[in-house]
Amino acid sequence: MEILKLREHGKLLDKASIWFHSKWGIPVEAYKESIGECLKNKEIVPQWYLVLEDKKIIGGAGVIENDFHNRKDLSPNVCSLYVEEEHRCKGIAGKLLQYVCDDINSMGIDTLYLITDHTSFYERYGWTFLCMVQGDGEPDKTRMYIHKKAK
């Protein structure tokens, strides 16, 4: 298993965009645009990451300003975290989350947020429930978690 920073692997732009689209249903072009911004290396956010095994994508995640919710002040957000079903329960998501946090922390950002429907998954990896937020165009509120770098 290998975790890659897409900003260092631009040749994977199309493959990554298609893979993320297949998991979340967000248009391929939206992923291409965001990953393309990551490749420019001008801003810390957005950032995108892939987990590869034998050159096959088995997981991924991103960091964007806002993951489609009303709390624009809670930024940046980890988004699109996904691990292929046959690779779950092996600690891959936890390793990826830690890798993402460490990478973003190394760029000077010590606090990350994420929204999720999961109620106990992220706590295992140092995330803390913060509040409920309204998703863009969603009828129900969803859970917002926070991760702060240990001092």
Rank of each mutant, 00 (worst) to 15 (best):
E2S: 14
E2L: 14
E2C: 09
I3Y: 00
L4G: 09
E8F: 11
G10S: 09
L13H: 00
S17D: 15
W19V: 07
W19M: 10
F20W: 11
S22D: 13
S22C: 11
S22F: 13
K23A: 09
W24M: 13
P27R: 12
A30I: 05
A30K: 08
E33T: 14
S34R: 07
I35M: 06
E37K: 14
E43F: 14
P46R: 07
I57C: 05
I57H: 01
H69G: 03
H69D: 01
N70L: 12
D73T: 07
D73W: 10
L74T: 03
S75H: 15
V78H: 04
V83W: 01
E85T: 06
H87D: 01
H87P: 00
I92L: 10
K95I: 11
L96G: 07
L96W: 02
L97K: 01
Q98E: 11
Y99W: 12
Y99V: 08
D102L: 12
D103Y: 01
N105S: 15
S106M: 15
S106H: 13
M107K: 15
D110S: 13
Y113D: 07
Y113E: 12
I115W: 04
S120P: 12
E123I: 06
T128R: 11
F129T: 00
Q134V: 14
Y145M: 11
K148S: 08
K151I: 07
K151W: 08
K151E: 12
